[in-house]
Amino acid sequence: MSATTPDGGPVVGAAPAGVEAQIARILALGTRLGIALLAVGSLLLVAAGISPLAEDWPPLDLAALPADLLALRPEGFLWLGLLVTIATPLLRVTAATLGFARAGERRMVLLGVAVLVVIALAVVAGATAD
């Protein structure tokens, strides 16, 4: 079953029922969470008197992230906010792929998986390139 227009008719080419609404929720929540973390990090940055352009930024260290968050260090909130922001569209692709899988639409599932494979390649390329 697909989405319907306001007058109750089917939307041609629409995604399976509920998928678009679910994706919209993911995008809204992910964006707000990412921005909230970046806002907290920015406030801590200002409070700490750190000038963004004058200082070298701390590298991304996933292992140090929990400790940075607990210690209210700006870099912890900023890095987590950036990770959530970048991950949000990828969660959207994952949710859409699962939605199409539930509806048995194999071709759309393949497209979604192909996008996720490209993203995985980006992670590998980014982590290993000189």
Partner: peptide, 30 residues
């Protein structure tokens, strides 16, 4: 979103995103 995320991952992992600049700028843009 997905297009920019694919390249942002490369930039992020290669040290091309400054969190000190990205944080305030992204909040302002939003």
């Amino acid at each position: 979103g997905v297009t920019a995320a694919a390249s942002a991952i490369v930039y992020l992992l290669r040290g091309g995103i400054d969190p000190y600049v990205a944080g305030p700028t992204a909040v302002g843009v939003f």
